[in-house]
Design a protein around this nucleic acid. Structure first.
Length: 301
DNA sequence: CACTTGACCTGTCCGC
DNA sequence: TGCGGACAGGTCAAGT
């Protein structure tokens, strides 16, 4: 369930840790976690240098000096954890890690049974792709061809980019006007980066019932929804994202945003705004958390 | 085309 | 204690 704040936190960590490193070898134990042509990997990934790490929505892009890029989707339980070389005192005594790497234990526990891809760099450091449920994947693509992939062609604006505004959200929602607002927010072709946690939190903050049909929402409501989406995503980014079960950042640290969540995973507790008991219902096939008092279905039909 | 549902997986929890 | 089944949720394929 890494969503935009989680993927961005990982990206920022990897951008500090990876550029300049040279890939020495790649191992994987599950074909679908690393669906790539062996020849292409040997020719364009091995001995390649990492140039930069970027992100589009929930997708991470590790760009290489060979003009190929690793496209990585973590789906629900994916992790990307960097571990310095076991005996690299230089790495482990730098300013941030003075006194030892904050997650020294990872050096000893990784790889584990959820590790499906391991990228080893020439300096002995490693990047582990762990994925308990095996839904995620690491794919190698020519960098120039990425914009032509269907997923990226249809991807909506990144929720934290300048291209995403209240007016744009309202406009893009018009293509999904007969579905629920929750389903529309989860649709990555409308806006990229929102998943179940931030959809529920945003709709609670905007006082909109998740099952509300998109077409009945007013301009004012959509504008308010836009504002709270940005606020919540930025707050989560500051807190290092949400750790429910599996999420950790590039160095194995958990995020603390769920401590600040108002409704997600809080069924049975009081709504912080009105005191009603938060309920868990099902909308768009997903577990959905609402305050039954603050979030009423609007019926203008 | 718009929209919904099931499949992909494994770990966990709940009821019997 | 063990076992079946529901559930967790991002995306795509297949269905209506």
């Amino acid at each position: 369930m890494p969503e935009l704040p989680e993927v961005e936190t990982i990206r920022a960590g990897l951008q500090r840790l990876l550029p300049g490193r040279i890939i020495d070898s790649i191992d994987f134990d599950w074909e679908k976690s690393f669906p790539n042509n062996t020849m292409a990997v040997e020719e364009y990934a091995l001995k390649a240098k990492v140039t930069q790490v970027t992100r589009q929505g929930k997708v991470l892009l590790i760009e290489l000096s060979t003009h190929y890029t690793f496209i990585i989707h973590l789906k629900m339980t994916g992790q990307l954890v960097f571990v310095p070389a076991p005996h690299s005192n230089v790495e482990r005594q730098n300013s941030k890690f003075a006194g030892g790497h904050p997650n020294d234990s990872l050096i000893h526990v990784l790889p584990d049974k959820s590790t499906h891809v391991t990228i080893t760099f020439t300096d002995g450091s490693k990047l582990f792709f762990n994925d308990q449920r095996k839904f995620g994947w690491v794919r190698l693509f020519p960098t120039a061809e990425i914009p032509n992939i269907d997923f990226f062609k249809t991807l909506g604006p990144d929720a934290l980019s300048k291209d995403f505004t209240g007016a744009i959200l309202f406009e893009r929602l018009q293509s999904r006007k007969n579905t629920s607002i929750k389903a529309a927010l989860l649709d990555q072709t409308v806006v990229a980066g929102i998943g179940n946690i931030y959809a529920d939190e945003s709709l609670w903050a905007a006082k909109i019932h998740p099952a509300t049909t998109v077409k009945v929402l007013s301009w004012k409501q959509v504008t308010e929804l836009y504002k709270v989406i940005i606020f919540i995503l930025q707050l989560s980014l500051k807190k290092g994202g949400s750790t429910d079960k599996n999420y950790v950042d590039a160095e194995g640290n958990k995020g603390s945003f769920l401590q600040f969540a108002q409704v997600f995973r809080r069924e049975g507790q009081k709504c912080p705004r009105c005191g009603s008991i938060i309920e868990k219902i099902r909308v768009a096939g997903r577990g959905t958390h609402i305050c039954p008092t603050c979030q009423k279905i609007e019926d203008t039909e």
